[in-house]
Simulated scan of single mutants.
Amino acid sequence: MEQDSMKKVVLITGGGRGIGAEASMILAKRGYRVAVNYVSNANRANEVVQEILNYGGEAIAVKADVRQPNEVDQMVKEICFKWGSIDALVNNANISFAAKPFQEMNWEEFSQKLNDEMKAAFTMTKAIIPMMIKNGYGRIVYVASGLAKNPSPKMIAHGTAKAGLVQFAKYVAQELGPNGITVNVIAPGLVDTEATADQPAEFREQMASLTPIGRIANPEDVARAIAMYVSDDCQFITGAYVPVNGGIAMD
């Protein structure tokens, strides 16, 4: 097991599936203590935890709806009771949205995604920054999307919400920098996960053919980028927007 973390504690929201699960396992292999957040699928979160424990890592599963302050506060207390603090946050939990053209969308559908996405980021950030400020150290990574800058059909709610998250991260980075806290955004392109399993094969092939690296991303590709920005290798990088898309869009 790599030991570059000095037993730091990382909380990964939506850590039981897809990108979050891969990030949980990669960071655990690098020596982090990992809190795997979930909201409903305890089995998947516990499977990730067990896999980490099997190879000698440290992990716990913690339940909370990241949009609910009371649940988040209880989750943070549980992690701190176990390990004393939280050194890094990976804000990754998937927020559902209506995938449809603007002309077919109503305000309730559009605003639901914006409100839920930003409330999750706001609530999680509020909950963990007091201890980071006290410790004079912190790493925050928000998982956004390339759709924040590059629109695609039927993705107006998702893309607009993620664009808001990108700008939110810049303000948090500016405000918290003097406290030793870095804040960065990982922006994946198309990733081969359960959430994208319904995409037609023809679309996947087209995206792969347009990507300089010649394929679409897998969860590990994104998780490795997350791990890099959680680490101290990026101690002087903050407020960055980091595309992880194989070069299909070069921001």
Rank of each mutant, 00 (worst) to 15 (best):
R30D: 01
G18N: 06
A217D: 01
K7S: 06
A157M: 05
N43A: 11
S209W: 06
N94L: 13
E194R: 15
G247N: 10
G177Y: 12
V9D: 01
A249H: 09
I237P: 06
I95Y: 03
A45W: 07
K119I: 05
G246Q: 01
I216L: 12
R33G: 01
G18Q: 02
G246E: 01
Q174R: 14
D232I: 03
S145A: 12
F236C: 08
N150L: 15
F122V: 04
S85I: 07
G246A: 01
K63M: 05
A225R: 14
K162T: 00
S96W: 08
D65N: 15
L27S: 02
R30Q: 11
L27G: 04
V48E: 03
W107F: 05
I12A: 10
S85M: 11
G136C: 10
V36M: 15
E104N: 09
N54F: 13
L11F: 13
C80F: 15
P153R: 11
D116R: 07
R204P: 10
G14M: 08
M131N: 02
T13E: 09
I128N: 09
N91Y: 07
G20V: 00
V143M: 08
F168I: 00
S85N: 05
L165G: 12
G84E: 00
G84Y: 08
I248T: 04
L190W: 10
E78H: 14
M1C: 13
E58S: 15
T123N: 06
K7T: 07
R139Q: 08
A64N: 01
Q174M: 08
A93C: 14
Y38V: 02
A249K: 11
A227N: 11
T238W: 15
S209N: 10
A28F: 02
G20L: 09
T182K: 06
A225C: 06
I19T: 09
D116S: 08
G177V: 05
I186F: 03
Q50C: 14
Q235S: 14
V66L: 03
I237R: 07
S152P: 04
N94D: 09
V34H: 02
V191E: 01
I52M: 14
Y171A: 13
K113Q: 06
D192F: 12
S24I: 04
A45D: 02
A197S: 11
R67F: 01
S5R: 08
E220G: 04
W83D: 03
G16F: 03
P188N: 09
F168L: 07
M105C: 10
K154G: 12
P212W: 13
T13Y: 08
A249S: 00
S209F: 13
Q68L: 12
F102N: 09
I86M: 05
R204Q: 03
M228K: 10
L27K: 11
G57H: 04
I19S: 07
L114Y: 08
F81V: 15
P101S: 06
I216D: 02
T193L: 10
A21T: 11
G136L: 11
S152M: 11
F102K: 11
T13D: 06
L114W: 13
H158F: 13
P200R: 10
A121P: 05
E51C: 15
I181S: 01
G15F: 07
Q68P: 03
D198Q: 08
K119S: 07
K126L: 00
A201D: 12
A88N: 05
S40R: 14
